[in-house]
Nucleic acid binder design. Structure first.
Lengths: 227, 227
DNA sequence: TGATATTTAAAAATTTTTTTACAAAACTTA
DNA sequence: TAAGTTTTGTAAAAAAATTTTTAAATATCA
């Protein structure tokens, strides 16, 4: 996840701390110290998320938030407000202004990261890239698409789930039983030969036109994604 | 366009006329009769534009304007001045005070609307543009219109909301449940098959006459805007 | 080579989606 | 407010896609 975050915070120490912690998570951070400066930066950078201090020297964070939520180009950017106090009325006012989440100071780093991620998930799901790659094979779980060598491959639901499962632990061999349990589900009662048929279809699809076979048959054991 | 406009005008008849004409264009109007009152209202509401009469009972419009342009929170609000006379020196004084445009009484309604729109376009371009585009499909949330290849498409409320939602994350696959939650709302209790029917209606509408289908069915998963 | 395991193909069964039609509900407008 | 219109949700048949089963063919290995 490499979302861009703007922090509007006048307390230098806190800003530095925030930046340090969020950068460690792979976020790209830009900072501003005043509301005015922050708003300009936000308009220019169109970040994926904004962290705002409630109390700022020029005009309060709440005002910056109001401006963000009013502007059609900005209003879809989630805003986290840092408040010293956790008073109800502040929360209510913030909610009215469209604040998307709060963190009350002093706060714990884990909580901050958690909230940032959860907001990003809600507002910009596509940033939370949920995909797996094995060799030139890629599965994207957001769009539910599969690619081999950058060409899209169409898979039926079962073949998709099979690949989805196998690609999580390439090389590892799974028995037919294990595949049935994990891909089909414990309850379903299906012949174990069925797995073979689906493996074949998956093979056929991903090995289309002279591509090397990425599925290994392990005689009397099962199958694995391998080469 | 749904900008908020504050009119500061003491002549009731003129105020009413202005309000009527501007409302008809979709603007949201608030009124004040005196400069003092107006300034308060402006501070509280932070409108997108202010229409000021030059001559006001308490202190002149020009004074209100000066105060607006002095205040960091307000100075980015465009101001239109209504003047009875069109004398050069007034214009110059106004210009110095930061008036953004003039209209001389008596004025014509078309001209007023034109100037308001042109100022808004200059100062708050985002108000005029809240739209999303995917391929040759466009949704304009300000006018609530949808276009395919520049031809307008009529959509019922649910189809509109469905498209509005889908187009925010093209490619992404949503389950019927997710669509129900996001388009219909969490509370509503509706069969998930209903989604299919609305998807079909949306498809029918946007794929009118041999246009490529922009909606992807992902069997056993849901739908996405895609191609 | 013979026993065992896997692949392949094709038919049958099942699941899922599309389409159509209709009645109920909500909304317009005269 | 009543009549007319649009929109919505559901059901059910038709169509399409996918899965499972079956069985024969093929491959592997000791």
């Amino acid at each position: 996840m490499s979302a861009n975050i703007i922090i509007v915070e006048d307390e230098k120490d806190l800003a530095t701390l925030l930046k340090y912690n969020l950068s460690k998570e792979g976020f790209k951070i830009k900072e501003a110290e005043t509301g005015q400066e922050g708003l300009q930066l936000i308009k220019r950078e169109l970040p994926d998320l904004v962290i705002l201090d409630w109390m700022l020297p020029d005009f309060s964070g709440i005002e910056v938030c109001r401006q963000i939520k009013r502007d059609n180009k900005l209003k879809s950017i989630p805003v986290i407000m840092l408040t010293a106090k956790s008073e109800i009325e502040d929360k209510v006012r913030g909610l009215e202004m469209g604040v998307d989440d709060y963190i009350t100071k002093p706060f714990n780093n884990k909580e901050l990261i958690l909230r940032v991620k959860s907001l990003l998930k809600r507002f910009k799901p596509s940033l939370l890239d949920d995909s797996s790659v094995f060799k030139d094979l890629k599965i994207d779980r957001i769009t539910r698409k599969v690619f081999r060598d950058n060409h899209e491959i169409k898979l039926g639901p079962t073949e998709y789930k099979l690949l989805d499962f196998l690609i999580k632990s390439p090389q590892r061999v799974y028995s037919r039983e294990q595949l049935l349990n994990n891909v089909w589900g414990e309850t379903i009662n299906v012949e174990s030969r069925t797995v073979d048929v689906h493996i074949r279809r998956l093979r056929k699809a991903i090995n289309l036109n002279k591509k090397a076979d990425l599925i290994r048959t392990v005689r009397s054991s099962g199958y694995s994604l391998d080469s």
